[in-house]
Design a protein around this nucleic acid. Structure first.
Lengths: 216, 216
DNA sequence: ACCTGAACACCGTTCAAGT
DNA sequence: ACCTGAACACCGTTCAAGT
């Protein structure tokens, strides 16, 4: 079959892996199967992920946890960052997230917006959800989330340690809600997508109300 | 080596599996390694879990998710229940959990108590946490939790669909908080055990306050 | 009923080699 | 730089056999 210029890239590999995971579950993802899907020998993957499957898992986790513009593959934290630039869509190479138009909506609206988007992202890649249990990828979007949370919760009237505690609570609730939904989704009396979303909003509203010092 | 009366049992297998998971992670658990630890050929395990590793995983998940008295191994839901009795400590064979002394403390205290115990259990077996993402074991203790939640939240003033929604929110928060802690526990500025517990309580208090119709 | 031992298909990964 | 192909150690599981 001669030489195969498959045009492999980290992104193509991650996307294909996610596709396999969606279809056959996390346990159904093998390097050999992934190679087949990419029309490449399994060993070719190791050129892009030299540390093997574990590194691929980290990359998948970072991708899933980053509600970044589609097509953007975050770099992992745990490895040498001595590669060439690799920037694809010029989304800020100065280390800071590009300044966007100031969001002037109330803090709870901004937080609710973020929470819904985060939930949607996790739900979209729910097959890879368990990868996130032992991995907290250190992505730019994670940093942006931190900032957003901090601003919103300060605005809500929190200060000192309470800000970070509240941010943790919101974060915890979001991933917990998705885990809870995924856990029970194949059961008899499992709620449909609409009701699941309503429950998410209900709990989120309650949490934000309880978090706010002046009673919501 | 002649005959080996290893005295294998589902419980011994589960406990040993949990031990391996604690030491080497979920990926480090193999049937062969588990067999070694039990001083038995790996294939012997299949006599107690005929459906293989997947069934073992289900059993582990059920064990972890059930804050039952130590030594009680719940039976799985997805398989034929035609085995002989197997009851070990007579904790109610009539299908109902044994009636305990009525807990007369306020609803939020009862809920907080439950949440802390649940959190502690998940934290104790955090290596197996990802097994719970796609598994919701249908154990007696899960049923008991449902009842406890329902009573407490009704007492809090909730009614109708809100009761179940609130119960979901509390449940979600608990597993989410543990996942969040486990995810970040190997990071630089990770909070210690005491601070992690304080954060958990902080978020839980806020959630319960926000859930309660009359403002906590 | 409970456990062994050999066998099979599949897996992750290494390493030397091709272009 | 990018991919192949053979090889190695390990894996889950089946199946016939032992007691």
């Amino acid at each position: 079959m001669s030489r195969n210029y498959a045009g492999l890239s980290r992104e193509r590999i991650i996307l294909e892996a996610l596709h396999i995971i969606a279809g056959r579950g996390l346990g159904g993802l093998s390097m050999r199967r992934l190679g087949d899907a990419l029309e490449v020998e399994a060993m070719a993957i190791y050129h892009h992920f030299p540390l093997g499957k574990e590194q691929l898992f980290n990359a998948i986790a970072a991708y899933v946890a980053s509600p970044a513009p589609s097509g953007t593959v975050p770099t992992e934290p745990g490895e040498e960052a001595d590669e060439e630039a690799d920037e694809e869509s010029g989304e800020g190479t100065d280390g800071r997230v590009r300044e966007e138009a100031e969001d002037t909506r109330p803090w709870d609206v901004r937080l609710t917006d973020w929470a819904r988007a985060y939930r949607a992202r996790l739900l979209e890649f729910s097959g890879a959800l368990s990868l996130l249990v032992h991995r907290a990828p250190h992505t730019p979007s994670a940093e942006a989330t931190r900032a957003l949370m901090h601003r919103a919760l300060s605005e809500a009237g929190l200060s000192g340690d309470d800000v970070e505690r509240a941010a943790d609570a919101v974060h915890s609730y979001c991933v917990g809600a998705v885990v809870h939904q995924v856990r029970h989704q194949d059961e008899e009396g499992a709620p449909g997508a609409a009701e699941a979303e309503a429950r998410f909003d209900f709990g989120l509203r309650a949490l934000l109300r309880g978090l706010s010092p002046h009673g919501g």
